[in-house]
């Protein structure tokens, strides 16, 4: 007899996998997101608008299309897929790593936007002040710019994490639906709604998704509040 609050082992697996995939997607895209945001906010180079467009593509394209492109590039026979398998031993196809990659790509524009906006808001005159005190560009970035954009970075991470939890189209297209490997929470809910008598399980997972989302929101509020109180925004 299943109740509303006792998750079945399969459902628990889906929840754990989703959190795991979302955390990895968020963590792995952070350095790239920061780098691209800095390039877009501060860089002056040929092809900047092209880079901007590519970064934002997953936001405007149907997720299934993004998933299919990932399949072509990172699939077993895709050029990048083969490269990663040969060089780093990382296989994406039909693995949780692929689900994380799909999530990361879908969340990337959101993360870059959040960080870029906070970079635009940084008072460049503070960076000038640091330079007159003897700090070189790298040190200025680490000791002045980075602390000032911390709220933006946190916001970007939360957005990326939340987007990962909700990822469906690109994931199912790229890495399919393998329980314990690529069957994340949204996919599990979808599958449960397709089988007779799965409604209760779907409802349970929906509740879990709501709880996780609210927790993420509260966490981001708390972190942003702390960062603000420490004077990052005056």
């Amino acid at each position: 007899m299943s109740s509303l609050f006792a998750l079945s082992p399969d459902e628990l697996t889906a929840v754990r996998l989703s959190l795991w995939v979302a955390l990895w997607a968020m963590a792995a895209s952070l350095p790239f997101g920061l780098g691209v945001a800095v390039l877009l906010a501060r860089g002056r180079f040929w092809g900047k608008s092209l880079l901007n467009a590519i970064v934002h593509l997953p936001l405007v394209m149907p997720p299934v299309v993004t998933g299919f492109i990932l399949l072509l590039l990172f699939g077993r026979r895709g050029p990048l897929g083969r490269f990663f398998a040969d060089t780093f031993g990382i296989v994406f196809a039909f693995r949780w790593t692929g689900a994380a990659l799909a999530s990361a790509v879908m969340g990337f524009p959101l993360m870059v936007r959040a960080i870029r906006l906070s970079l635009d808001a940084v008072d460049r005159r503070l960076e000038d002040a640091a330079a007159t005190l003897g700090a070189n560009a790298a040190w200025v970035f680490v000791t002045v710019t980075l602390p000032l954009i911390l709220p933006g970075i946190v916001a970007g991470m939360i957005l990326s994490f939340a987007r990962s939890l909700g990822e469906f189209g690109a994931t199912i297209t790229f890495v399919s639906n393998i329980p314990g490997q690529t069957q994340t929470l949204p996919i599990a809910i979808y599958v449960l709604t397709q089988v007779p008598g799965g409604d209760l399980g779907a409802l349970r997972l929906t509740l879990v998704a709501v709880v996780i989302s609210i927790a993420a929101l509260f966490a981001s509020e708390a972190i942003a509040y702390r960062a603000t109180r420490h004077g990052a925004a005056s």
Binding site: R125, D128, A131, T132, V144
Partner: peptide, 19 residues
């Protein structure tokens, strides 16, 4: 470059690091 000049600058608005 600015950071090798050792010219101290006191700005009109202070420009203290808020963090």
């Amino acid at each position: 470059p600015v950071h090798r000049r050792r010219v101290g600058y006191v700005f009109q608005e202070g420009r203290l690091f808020p963090h």
